[in-house]
């Protein structure tokens, strides 16, 4: 606990709290535009825009999960090269939606956001995206071909282990 000797910082005005929700809306619109350019038909896009509205209004809702997963499924349905600029852009925007919604869910609309508070999150976002880009580069550089079934099974087992570990960590936290 800081004592009386701690020099207090003056409270700045900060940005209004609705900026995060507006950012969710803007990012959602950009995602919809990219999906439209990739050939996704109009009806699913209208549904997606509805999800964007719900997520911007209620960032703590399950609509955000659909908002993040929807572009991935849409791109699989549309088909095309697995690693292309649209995919990389949508990966970054989906991650951004996830992070923005996580912070917006913590704050009421009438709040004030001090941009300095979001700096560590922004740096981590860039670091994670750099890692994803490296992974994409690895995918492009590695030779294609059928993976052995045993390797696939090992991969699935690793993923299950990852989930089990994460759940165990969550249980320890709560």
């Amino acid at each position: 606990m800081s004592g009386p000797g701690t020099r207090p910082e003056p409270l700045a005005t900060g940005l209004p709290g609705w900026v995060l929700r507006a950012a969710i809306g803007v990012v959602g619109l950009v995602v919809a535009a990219i999906l439209h350019a990739e050939g996704v038909s109009l009806v699913p896009l209208v549904l997606y825009l509805g999800l964007v509205g719900v997520a911007a209004g209620i960032p703590a809702s399950a609509a955000v999960a659909l908002l993040v997963a929807y572009p991935a499924v849409a791109l699989v349905v549309v088909g095309g090269e697995p690693v292309r600029p649209a995919v990389l852009a949508l990966v970054a925007l989906g991650h951004l939606l996830h992070v923005l919604s996580a912070y917006a869910a913590l704050l009421p609309v009438r709040s004030r956001i001090h941009p300095k508070a979001l700096r560590p999150a922004a740096l981590r976002f860039l670091a994670v995206q750099a890692g994803v880009l490296a992974l994409a580069a690895l995918v492009v550089l590695l030779p294609g071909g059928r993976t052995d079934e045993v390797v696939e099974l090992i991969g699935v087992a690793c993923a299950v282990g990852l989930v089990a570990g994460a759940v165990a960590l969550m249980g320890r936290r709560s």
């Binding site: 791109l75 699989v76 989906g94 991650h95």
Partner: peptide, 20 residues
């Protein structure tokens, strides 16, 4: 991984990383 779709892995990777 199961359906051999790299896009899905790329979409899931940042979410998984940040959660971990």
């Amino acid at each position: 991984g199961l359906f051999h779709r790299v896009e899905l892995v790329l979409f899931g990777a940042p979410l998984l990383l940040s959660t971990l």
